[in-house]
Amino acid sequence: MEVFLAWQWFHRLGSPRWFYQKTGAWLPWLALASAVLLATGAVWGLGFAPEDAKQGNSYRIIYIHVPAAFLALAGYYIMAVGGAIGLIWKMKLSFAVMRAAAPIGAVLTFIALFTGALWGKPTWGTYWVWDARITSMLILLFLYIGVIALGRAFAREQVADKACALLALVGTVNIPIIYKSVDWWFTLHQPATIRLTKASSIDPSMFYPLLTMIAGFYCFYAWTLIAHTRVLLLQREWRTQWVREALVEEK
């Protein structure tokens, strides 16, 4: 019986109408949570956290760089899981989530790369270093762009959905292999002058604002993803009764 109820719930969650109606109420709360968390984290991290002994103030960019990099990778998995659910259970909603997650993830990856480059200038004296993590991020960006470009190339949305889902799954299988091989490549070519202080432990006074920022980024991600998915659903289902009703209500 419980299994049945869970299944029914899962099934209902897959209904675009149900999703649209439920998530409408969540959006303001998510927006509020991300605004509060991001503002707190930013003020705390940029204004009150102590200076780094070696890097001075330039380290503070981690308050954007690290959460963005976190979510860029997590976003790819969210996209792939959405695609997998879509392929297996043929759910329209999860395809929409997958398609919505792609550009968001690509932007986050770009932010992580951009802030990483900015951080590189004072730290390494150059904007671009072929560091293992930066290189992996760059390849992740290419993977995202591949999914987005493939989705745009098809005239029919249903075909595009399935093709993107398959590509995202193939990418998911490959990401760990790519990351490992890039790591190995970097240890092979690592110049002596570039050493990341990865192992050094971070002080709690710097760490808590970072945690706040990560939580804020997660909320912001959820808010963007849901909002984007809602727009996609309206576009895709515009012929149906529930969209007409929903739009009339919102007027």
Binding site: I139, F142, A149, V159, A163, I178, S181, V182, W185
Partner: peptide, 30 residues
């Protein structure tokens, strides 16, 4: 196979396949 139904897949094919080639390139040249 993903791009076969498209009329001009050339660059798109490169875009989606190239990142997947990375491990082979790294270990081959390595």
């Amino acid at each position: 196979a993903l791009t076969v139904a498209l009329s001009r897949p050339g660059l798109l094919l490169a875009l989606i396949v190239m990142p997947l080639y990375v491990p082979v390139l790294i270990f081959g040249t390595g």
